[in-house]
Write a protein that binds this DNA or RNA. Sequence first.
DNA 1: ATGGCCGTTTTGAACGGA
Length: 264
Amino acid sequence: MRLASWNVNSIKARLDAAMTWLDEGKPDVLALQELKCVDDAFPRLEFEAKGYNVIVAGQKSYNGVALVSRLPLENPVIGLAGDASDEQARYVEATVAGVRVASIYLPNGNPIGTEKFNYKLAWMDRLRARAAELLKSGGAVALMGDFNVIPKPEDCYDVSAWVEDALYQPESRAQFRALCWLGYYDAFRTAKPHAPAAYTFWDYQGGAWQKDNGIRIDHILLSASAIDRMTDVDIDRRPRGRPKASDHTPIWCDLADAPTAPRL
DNA sequence: ATGGCCGTTTTGAACGGA
C-alpha cells in the first residue's frame, strides 16, 4: 500500500497537477493540505472518477485538509481534540485497510514571539496527545502532512536563513522530537539517514527552486508496526518543476501487506 | 534583497504562506 502526502496550496489551482500525480505517483492513500476551499468546493467528482474515496475538512480561503483513498476510509475523525474553540481546518484521520492515517497541516507559527507561534506550540501539544492515544492499540499509524518543522540542519539548504523562523525554532524542533519519542519514526530519515538536499518545499521567491534552496518540512511519521512494514520511501520532485506548481512536492512510502501471523 | 512569488478575497489592496 502506497501512502503519500502533498501540500497543494489550493486544490482548485492544482487540480490538473493533482490528477496528473495520481496517475504517475499511484498512491493508494493521499493526504492533502492547504485546500483553501470549503467542503462543497472540493473537486470530489474528479477524484472519485479516478477511483478514490474522499473525506474533506475544508475551510474558506485558508487551511483545509483531506484524505483520498482507493480503499474505504473508515471511522473518520475531523479536527484535533483539545481546543473546542479552534476553528482552523488542519486535521483529519481515518482507517484504511487497518492503518490509521492522518492528514496534518501544522500551523506555520510566524512571526515568532507572537500569538501565532504560541498557537503552533499549543497545537503540537494537542497533536502529541492524540498521537499517543493512537499508539495504544499497537496498530499501524501514519501521521502525514505539512508539519512546518525543519527537524535538523541537514534538512535545510542554509540554516542561517532560517534561524529567526518559526519552522527552525528550538521549541518547534523539540516538539517534533517529542512526538517522535512517543514511538514514531520519520519514514524518510529512517530509510535514508544521509540523503543530502532531500527537500519538500521551495519558496516561490528568489529562484529558490532553480537554486535548490529547499527545506524538508513535509513528513510521514510511522508507528513501529507501520515502519516495520515499510519497503520504500521517497520525495517526488517532479511536480515542483512544472508550470503553475505548488511550492511543496509529494512525499510517499510503501507498506507491505500486514502479516497474517507473527513472523518471528 | 521575503522589494522582486503565489493564491485568496465582500475585486483590488491586504493577508497568509514559509
